[in-house]
Design a protein around this nucleic acid. Sequence first.
RNA 1: GCGCCCGUAGCUCAAUUGGAUAGAGCGUUAGCCUCCGGAGCUAAAGGUUACAGGUUCGAUUCCUGUCGGGCGCACCA
Length: 554
Amino acid sequence: MTEGLAEALRATGLFAPERLARIELAIPRDPAHGDWTTNLPLILARETGRAPRAVAELLAAAFPRDAERFSSVEVAGPGFLNFRYSPAFLGWLPGRIRAEGETFGRSGGGEGQSIQVEYVSANPTGPLNVVSARAAAVGAALVRLLEATGHRTAGEFYVNDMGSQVDLLGESLAARFGERMGRPRPFPENGYQGAYLHELAAALPETEGRAALESPQALTWFRDQALERMVESQRRDLADYGVRLDLFFRESTLHHSGAVTETLEQLVQRGVVYEAESARWLKTTQFGDDKDRVVVRANGQPTYLLPDIAYHRDKRRRGFRHSIDLWGPDHHGHILPLRASLGALGLEPDFLEVLIVQQVNLLSGGAPVKMSKRSGEFITLRDLMEEVGTDCAKFFFLLRSTSAHLDFDLDLAKRQSDENPAYYVQYAHARIASILRFADERGLEPDPSGAPLDAPSRMEEAELRLVRKLAAFPEVVRGAAIAREPHRLPTYLMETAAEFHRFYHVCRVVSEDAVRSRHRLGLAEAARIVLSNGLALLGVSAPERMERGVEVGP
RNA sequence: GCGCCCGUAGCUCAAUUGGAUAGAGCGUUAGCCUCCGGAGCUAAAGGUUACAGGUUCGAUUCCUGUCGGGCGCACCA
């Protein structure tokens, strides 16, 4: 549909082609304004200094006569363009959706651009927490959205397996293991107190561990043990959560391969490094930062920034044209330094895009649940999965805009009742599956030809509303991908489920009228496909059956 | 002190690069099961979009200030 608009824009020479990919259409609040609307003429009017309605008239005239899809393109109000589906298009749509099946909703606007999405990237010093759980849900959904819109993507987890925090983890583990073996050693100040270290210590091979305790290499051994086991446990948590990551990228590989050194040399060659106070500084201020940053400390060790630069350099060298990083709220201060650093290195200014995944406040019994990694008093991703289930957890995280703080009500998420919004969409899917089974037992199925069995003029209002909602799916997916806003999808799916439920209450699907039954079964099946495809993008299952009316006791 | 995110219905949140009459869920109230799944549907009530200015055809959205909440401001990562 945006293709038609793009064609009109090209024909009128009104809009730079490189911006075409970012045009979004909107569904008007008021159905009287058509099925789709855009305020593009108003924007163009401002940019070109022309009268908005004149621009709109021009575009409307140049819009290709897509009689198959739209019956009208109207200029309205101060300069909106309103589009209205043709009856034939709506009539054929359910059949088309059934023909396209799992691919309905996909589009090719990304033109195969390769994008890397880095998410979670938690320190390997403890189990993944709820912010990581949110980031994992969002990152995985974003990857799927980008793939559904024609991008090639890879999801990646950056493992900070070097530095003082990992050393501290190793020391903490050594102390815990020493305790178990009756060879106590001092627990490090600010060491990691969590119960998971007791479990790690208990899992270590005893003989080897005892030997390591006596060895001068004790800390190296315990650090490596802690690291490998924590990374493995995080990986397992994410896999059980249903989140696919293509690569766990170790920071240490950048040091071992010489990439860190090379990056520094490259920066030196570009003349953006200087020495001061025995340290080496990067002139990030020349690239938009508000102060220069140390890249090599006075003691000769690089700061976190240098390997970070090397990492993004590596991404670019692996062929990615764009990197979307999902960071926690405590890292927003690093966006500017890193972007400026990549500029200093000579990467494209828009190579790096950072999305901040805001914090999660867990509520239980109406009161906030305290979280502290050091004290070990916190709710982990694993806890969350066990408490509320993966589907529910992901749905809750994806329901809200990523950039906003999120209150996660554990009690609500746990409740298997109509108070819980996560079940609403799944229920609609299960209900349709049930209807299809019911029909199948009576030898009824949707017409395989996909031809409209009922003219739109004979369709109930509820049927037409549902069809219109289904028609919007590809554009909603596209908009969510462009705007990096996965939360648009749950909202859309809830609306779609609502339209289906409404339809169900007004229209008897399986009836004595075989033709009408098959027509409505086709519509129901199309709705099932859209719900299923949408849930798949969220990483949430689309159940064929749900337990009925489960009420959890007090 | 400076920077970032946020402040919308009783609660949790939407509102698509500024758009047409600010919408959902939960909660509240009143209805709907002879019949395909009632985890559902229908309807009602609920708003000075924190506050004060500004920009324009139009502001929840952009700008300035104030108030309130959260997070940052390292030669930690």
